[in-house]
Nucleic acid binder design. Structure first.
Lengths: 248, 248
DNA sequence: CCCAATTTGTTCGTATGTATA
DNA sequence: TTATACATACGAACAAATTGG
């Protein structure tokens, strides 16, 4: 773990605690501290960065607020991990009309490596010649097909990914990104429109072509705010809806 | 300004800074500190609540994060105000497909006081016998009708509200609630579905009946987390979309 | 079951820097 | 220039939760 202890001289235009925060984020992005494990204790971090406890806590406070780190009194401070129990619902914003959330059942519909399309290239900051991994998931809620996810990943970041890996993963997709590729999704940007079901999606969702459908466009970002996933979700909102996550 | 300085003995199961926070929220809800004005300086608040500067700042920090208070170094800490320039966009989540936000033009379509309907009564915690004020706005973006808002308010809270007041307001609706009724919207809950345009909405929006339409159901809450507005927005997403506000 | 060590949470307060009026 | 107000940084003392012996 080669954390530089030179954070004590803040660069111009910044502050000491922001400097510490950047160092922590760098260590996380570099995989020096793994998801699910504890980072060094506060006292240790104070020594490493040569800052006081107050300054250190202020730096960590913000990362805790962003769900990047999780503090447990008496136990330590842990790197947030995507797992079914806790983090699953952090980026899954669908409920039934009464507001109840349930675990989706999943089935992989298609999987291919191909040249990246124009929109995905723009969203993922790729060039037109880059390759991408594109796959489609069908999600069931209470035994009924409700959501079709068209997902695109930058091939360079996920080069070794296989269809079987997606099919046989024991946990969420974002857990797979994290455990197998060291990529932690910490933030998403989403935009929603109403549209009509194209035949392909109507068939998958068991609705009439042309029926109204909710389209969710998402870019998912990693520690260093790099876009690492682009997806469009097509949702049958007859019995379900999108619940806007509460800021904070 | 009758702030009680008894916050120094935290109740069981809570903490001192939370106690201070509650006192500040109570003062805001009671209208003792008005939107747009500065609250007492930190040093003054420390004396009033008999707490240290650190504890006070921790209490205020969270209210600042929630956009309830706004701090300005060298000037003071201010009660957040809904106005066109800053806060307008806080609860207005529509952009064009490129992500550009513009000010909507507005026209009042209907206005009535009537018995509250079943859904609104549930959302606003009213009984079936309570009265409500129901009105409809049509919003134009770049000269085109894009959004129809069906809005319901609890009559008891807005008893003196008139149609002319809504029509002639110089600022946003939430600014009107705040300046004329002392009600500050600080949080909303929103749920989204895709639907088809009913004739009434199709006509207002200049689209075909049955065209796909985005439905946004919103409950808006005041300082004391009391629901004070219920609305359904019907949105033509041909040229615009809903941008999910970023947590934080 | 209790104790001791560890770790985070809360509260206190001081000194100094930066922005504003 | 001066006074005021928030921002940053420091660190001490104690409380509360957890873990392992």
């Amino acid at each position: 773990m080669n954390i530089k202890a030179n954070a004590s001289i803040p660069a111009v235009g910044t502050t000491l605690y922001k400097e510490v925060q950047r160092e922590v984020l760098r260590a996380l992005a570099a995989g020096e501290w793994k998801p699910g494990t504890a980072i060094p204790a506060e006292k240790k971090l104070c020594e490493m960065f040569s800052v006081s406890i107050g300054t250190l806590r202020k730096a960590i406070d913000e990362l805790v607020a962003e769900n990047i780190l999780i503090r447990h009194q008496g136990r330590g401070t842990f790197v947030a991990q995507h797992n079914r129990a806790q983090q699953m619902f952090r980026f899954f914003n669908f409920t039934d009309h009464a507001g109840n959330k349930t675990y989706p059942q999943l089935s992989l519909i298609s999987y291919a490596k191909r040249r990246v399309d124009k929109v995905a290239a723009e969203k993922l900051h790729l060039s037109a010649s880059d390759k991408a991994i594109a796959f489609t998931n069908l999600l069931y809620l209470e035994e009924q097909p409700v959501i079709v996810d068209d997902i695109v990943l930058p091939e360079p970041l996920f080069a070794s990914l296989t269809e079987e890996q997606i099919r046989n993963r024991p946990n969420t997709l974002y857990n797979l990104y994290q455990t197998d590729f060291g990529i932690s999704i910490i933030r998403t940007e989403e935009r929603l429109r109403a549209g009509t079901a194209q035949p392909r999606y109507a068939e998958l969702l068991g609705i009439k072509p042309g029926a109204p459908i909710l389209e969710v466009r998402r870019v998912a970002f990693s520690y260093d705010d790099k876009p690492v996933e682009w997806r469009i979700s097509y949702v049958n909102t007859d019995k379900h809806e999108y619940a806007v996550p509460t800021a904070q």
